[in-house]
Amino acid sequence: MAISEAEAVVMEVLWRAAPRSAEEILAEVGPAQDWQEGTVKSLLNRLLKKKAVRAERDGRRYLYTPLLSREKYVSQESKGLLDRLFDGRVAPLVAHFSEQRKLTRKDVAELRKLLKELDDEQP
């Protein structure tokens, strides 16, 4: 399921707390994104069509709840990034980020710990 950048902003609101109305979503992200109510409702309709969210009637409004988990979304996005830019390989990704942004001692320690854990799992 492909989620646009704008749709992801709406999803982040819903992942933090759901269910939420379009008005509540607008209040949270509208000013920062310079969005109007119609924009939020259009994004919610797109997310409904993609089955990323569901809507339940609550009086005269709808409340939206995510069907797509944040974990699944992050997994899809990171796999897509790896496949598109690094031929599905993690090492070139880490090398790229280490060249573009200085890794802290903590980053390096976490990477070493992860590599050790992965090495320990190998038969």
Rank of each mutant, 00 (worst) to 15 (best):
M1S: 08
A2M: 04
A2D: 12
I3M: 06
I3G: 02
S4L: 09
E5S: 11
E7S: 04
E12N: 12
V13D: 03
V13Y: 00
V13K: 02
L14N: 02
L14F: 05
L14E: 01
W15M: 00
W15R: 00
R16Q: 10
A17R: 14
R20V: 00
S21Q: 03
A22Y: 01
E24A: 07
E24H: 03
E24C: 00
I25T: 02
L26T: 04
G30E: 04
A32N: 05
Q33E: 10
D34E: 10
D34G: 09
W35D: 01
Q36V: 03
T39L: 05
K41E: 10
S42G: 11
N45M: 14
N45V: 12
R46H: 13
L47G: 07
L47H: 06
L48C: 08
K50M: 07
K51N: 11
K51C: 07
A55R: 08
E56V: 13
R57N: 04
G59P: 03
R60Q: 06
Y64R: 10
T65F: 02
T65C: 00
P66T: 01
L68F: 00
S69M: 01
E71D: 07
E71M: 03
V74P: 02
V74T: 05
S75D: 09
S75G: 08
Q76E: 11
E77P: 00
K79P: 01
L81I: 11
L81Y: 08
F86L: 03
A91F: 06
L93C: 12
V94P: 10
V94R: 08
A95Y: 07
A95R: 12
F97T: 07
F97P: 04
S98F: 09
K102E: 15
K102R: 15
T104L: 11
R105W: 13
D107S: 13
D107N: 15
V108H: 11
A109D: 15
A109V: 14
L111Q: 12
R112Y: 15
L114E: 15
E117K: 14
L118H: 15
L118K: 15
D119S: 13
D120E: 15
